[in-house]
Design a protein around this nucleic acid. Structure first.
Length: 591
RNA sequence: CGGGGCGUAGCGCAGCUUGGUAGCGCACCUGCCUGGGGGGCAGGUGGUCGGAGGUUCAAAUCCUCUCGUCCCGACCA
């Protein structure tokens, strides 16, 4: 159906000899995570400056594939695409208050007239401004807009290649509604659309409840790709019937089901010279950390006199404090500050490392788990001494109970089913109900049924396009290179002729195949480079092309080609005449 | 912003301690051989040693400043 004029044919960019294949044998010294290393080695990206990357032709092809899927699913979900400027006027950011709030992550600049601008890290202000100017009536709502744009966040420490870069491509969407109910509907639709997108991309992902921050409500979810190198810890239930998943920052640590055991031993004070950490005390006394209680002293919320009283937090020795939970506690100062050592000495007459609940005069907030301990060990509020066999009520007390620790594997799941499991995740998507935060700050209203202006409700929804590429690689690689999910592969099929230069049969067979594949709409690259076979194989594997067909004199004689799946260990022979149909079948689910 | 490492050819590195003609492997170019898993032989191209200043007859090497970059931490979401 497609006609190739000879010069198109010869210079076709899908011929490896005409395409920039920038593979490298050696791993650049400054790449730490596997995706970064492989993206550099496979010639997908090149670093321009810290956190800035050029997408080479090979890498761009994968980006385009992600974008295409994202567009298809968002269009299907009823969103409309638009494109907003990357550079934004400061006025809008001043109006929303974020010009002050955002800090140095916001790249600010001045134009030739000395007017302030920024390079957009996100586009809430611009879209809200657009909507308040364009839409008057509630009848126009709801509406949902998206764009695929380059964003810039001046990260303190860019790292891991495009995983945390400063400039990146993001799909962001913003929905507008008359009321919360409509917002909820679109939010749910977007949740579904995101699930479709990540499923089609072939990623192993989880939708995870996230910290809704200062805005409130529970309407914020992150989509994480599960991978070792992830920067976030995700807690979820190991019960297959449960959908519970939460960022570890927000996962609730439940009260253990087993009740507190009765005291069985008498309290004792023991000398523990120079033992200041839970670990060393427990080793010294030959106890398990689970039998010890740790006491942390932090600054409390300011009282009427502007003083910050000391507050003690007690946790089971092997548990760790969750700063986000602690900061939200009404008795605690925010941001969280550990008590200066001098105040502990002055007010508690002891030193850090020997603090305990017995006779402590300040407020004591006990973690739920700490309250069911019995016969436990804790500091004796006397430097160099600990109490053993302590028991609540009998020997000491706490003022309040709260959830102040991080969940650990094996904890009961908050959903009531199964136990907590923890895995690392890479955040690739985030959906959020903004409410009227921006519409109020920027006075974006529509007239409601009663003819009265009413602030629009907003939702926002992001997907890190470039980050998805890195995340996909983190999840799909082996010692030879990338193993792309089909939907993301820069090319679907690699045709590798051997001795293409000299063997007329090989050349003719390959050219014919190549043309057939292209005519069938398959993303095929033909490696016509005058290279030794080993080099071509290694490149195809490094780049991670899912399907490979080798054309050699040997096979042609017997009417066969060699096929190999990137994830398979062995070749299979393929009748020459069936090659196209065979590959089409393999690609079947693509269209 | 604090701590640490590193800047020498496109990539990976040696040389610096003890100053004296800038090297190795890969890549690249030419020729021949080879031709189903990063091949061999021979000959080549390519570097103001991150930059500036200083010490010295002489600086990749010593001193001062500076820039870049990576890691850890803090910060941010």
């Amino acid at each position: 159906m497609v006609h190739y004029f000879s010069y198109y044919w010869i210079y076709s960019p899908m011929r490896a000899s005409q395409f920039l294949i920038a593979t490298q044998k050696e791993t650049p010294a400054d790449a730490e995570v596997i995706s970064h290393q492989l993206m550099l080695r496979a010639g997908l990206i090149r670093r321009l400056a810290s956190g800035l990357y050029t997408w080479l032709p090979m890498g761009l092809r994968s980006i385009r594939k992600v974008e295409r899927i994202v567009r298809e699913e968002l269009d299907a979900a009823g969103a409309q695409e638009l494109l907003m400027p990357a550079v934004q006027p400061a006025e809008l950011w001043q109006e929303s208050g974020r010009w002050q709030q955002y800090g140095p992550e916001l790249l600010r600049l001045k134009d030739r007239h000395q007017r302030d601008f920024c390079v957009g890290p996100t586009h809430e202000e611009v879209i809200t401004d657009m909507m308040r100017k364009e839409v008057r009536s509630y009848k126009s709502l709801p509406m949902n807009f998206y764009q695929i744009q380059t964003k810039f966040r001046d990260e303190v420490r860019p790292r891991f290649g495009v995983m945390r870069s400063r400039e990146f491509i993001m799909k962001d969407a913003y929905s507008f509604h008359l009321d919360q109910q409509s917002l909820q509907q679109t939010y749910d639709t977007m949740h579904l659309a995101y699930s479709h997108i990540f499923t089609r991309l072939g990623l192993n992902f989880r939708a995870v409840r996230a910290d809704s921050g200062s805005i409130g409500g529970d309407a914020s979810q992150e989509f994480h790709v599960l991978a070792q190198s992830g920067e976030d810890d995700i807690a979820f239930s190991n019960d297959p019937s449960s959908h519970f998943a939460a960022n570890i920052e927000t996962a609730e640590a439940m009260l253990p089901k087993a009740p507190r055991a009765a005291p069985s031993k008498a309290m004792k004070m023991v000398h523990t010279p120079d033992q200041k950490t839970i670990q060393s005390v427990c080793e010294f006394l030959g106890l398990a950390a689970t039998q010890s209680l740790k006491t942390l002293v932090v600054l409390g919320h300011e009282d009427d006199n502007g003083q910050q009283p000391l507050v003690a937090l007690v946790l089971r020795g092997d548990h760790t404090m969750n700063e986000i939970k602690v900061e939200k506690h009404p008795l605690i100062a925010s941001p969280l500050t550990m008590a200066p050592e001098q105040r502990i000495v002055d007010e508690l007459n002891t030193t850090p490392g020997s603090i305990g609940p017995v006779g402590l005069s300040i407020s004591i907030i006990a973690d739920r788990c700490a309250t069911v301990m019995s016969d436990f060990t804790a500091g004796a509020n006397l430097p160099g001494y600990h109490h053993t066999n302590l028991n609540w009520e009998r020997d000491c007390d706490y003022t309040q109970v709260a959830d102040i620790r991080n969940v650990v594997e094996g904890d009961p799941s908050p959903c009531g089913h199964g136990n907590i499991e923890i895995k690392r995740g890479i955040e690739v998507g985030h959906i959020f109900q903004l409410g009227d935060k921006y519409s109020q700050a920027m006075n974006a209203t529509v007239l409601n049924e009663n003819g009265k202006p009413q602030f629009m409700q907003m939702g926002c929804y992001g997907i890190g396009i470039t980050r998805i590429i890195a995340a996909a690689i983190e999840q799909n690689f082996d010692e030879n290179g990338i193993m792309w999910p089909l939907a993301l592969a820069p090319f679907e099929v690699a045709l590798i002729p051997l001795n293409y230069e000299k063997s007329a049969v090989v050349r003719e067979t390959t050219d014919a195949l190549y043309r057939d594949f292209k005519d069938a709409g398959i993303d095929v690259i033909m490696d016509d480079r005058a290279m030794r076979p080993g080099v071509k194989f290694a490149d195809a594997e490094l780049i991670g092309i899912p399907h490979r067909i080798v054309i050699g004199d040997r096979g042609i004689d017997s009417g066969t080609l060699e096929y190999r799946d990137r994830r398979a260990v062995a070749n299979e022979d393929l009748p020459l005449t069936e090659a196209l149909d065979f590959v089409k079948a393999k690609l079947g689910h693509r269209q």
